[in-house]
Computed example of a mutant assay.
Amino acid sequence: MNLKKVIMLGATGAVGNQAALQLSKIPQLGQLTLLGRNQANNIVGEVIQQHQVDVCKPDSYCSLLQGHEIAICTLGVGQPSKMSKQAFVEIDKIAVLDFAIACKAAGITHFQLLSSVGASAASRSFYLRSKGELEDALKALNFERLSLFQPSMIITPKNRYGLSQALFLKFMPLLDPLLIGSINKFRSIAVDRLGKAIAFNVYTEYADINKIETLHWADFITLSRNINNLENSIVTNQRV
């Protein structure tokens, strides 16, 4: 069996930490390399390697990319409204794109990105426009496979950002059942389920000839359920 070798940027964030934690439990994992400004202390195991790097300086981690086949990037700013637009772009867009470019140069074939529902280069929202521009830049790199995770509201066990998040955490689950059909992609998703989805997607195969998959709430639910059934073989999960 080809044991997967995964490298990840952003494992100390809420979603990234859950994805890394789920990956660390999968027997088919050959190596998980975590890059970040700090170490994820709850991610341990024989196949886990952690390196403290400057996420804004690719030279600090380029040599660590070789030998991996899959990259996951969940790097991002927790509260974009609390910082300048320039600072947001430096982390959420430039640092992520630099990581992707370095991954491509190192021969990594599958790149997974934590993005946002509504991401579009044509959006009037600065946040969504920046995310859309990043997605377009990643598509232009022509990875053999590009997975774009676009969640809406992410539900965490604890309120991390004050009153606005407290209101979302309380009321969003009540609104979710009303979001049906084509708008179910705006449903909230629990952070652990999203982490499971990102982890399990590493072990799926994508049959679409376009090589690019955009994943929303329904995909997260399916993937997070399937991770519990991961056995000693690669599971094929084809989406059209």
Rank of each mutant, 00 (worst) to 15 (best):
Y161V: 03
Y203W: 12
T109W: 04
S188R: 07
F99C: 08
V96C: 10
G181P: 11
S123I: 15
F200T: 15
K170D: 07
G76C: 10
L134M: 09
L175G: 12
K158W: 03
F200E: 12
R187T: 05
I155F: 01
N201F: 02
R124H: 05
E133C: 14
N201P: 00
S182F: 06
F99Q: 09
I189T: 08
F88A: 03
T74P: 10
D92M: 14
I183E: 03
F111T: 00
K82W: 09
I155C: 03
S125T: 09
L179K: 06
V202R: 01
I183D: 02
L194K: 11
S130V: 04
A122T: 13
I108R: 11
E205H: 14
Q150T: 03
F126K: 06
E144Q: 13
Y127R: 13
R160K: 07
S123G: 15
V191P: 02
V77K: 06
S120N: 10
L163D: 08
A105D: 05
A119C: 05
C103V: 10
D192C: 12
F99S: 10
A102C: 10
N184S: 11
R193K: 14
M83T: 15
G78K: 14
L179H: 01
R129T: 07
A140V: 08
A137L: 01
H110D: 11
R193L: 12
F88C: 03
V77E: 11
A71K: 12
K185M: 01
I154W: 01
S125V: 11
S188W: 10
S84D: 07
K104N: 05
A121C: 00
F149S: 00
E135C: 04
M172F: 15
G162Y: 05
F186L: 12
D192H: 14
E135W: 05
T156R: 09
K82H: 04
A190Q: 02
A87M: 09
H68G: 00
A190G: 00
I108T: 13
L179M: 14
R145V: 12
A119T: 02
L178P: 04
S116F: 00
K158R: 14
V191A: 01
F171S: 01
D192N: 14
A87H: 06
F88V: 04
K131R: 15
L113V: 09
L148G: 00
Q150S: 10
L174C: 03
Y161A: 09
I108H: 09
L138R: 12
F171W: 06
A87Q: 14
P173D: 09
S152A: 15
I183V: 15
Q66H: 06
R145N: 15
K104S: 07
H68C: 00
T74H: 02
R124M: 06
S123N: 15
K196W: 02
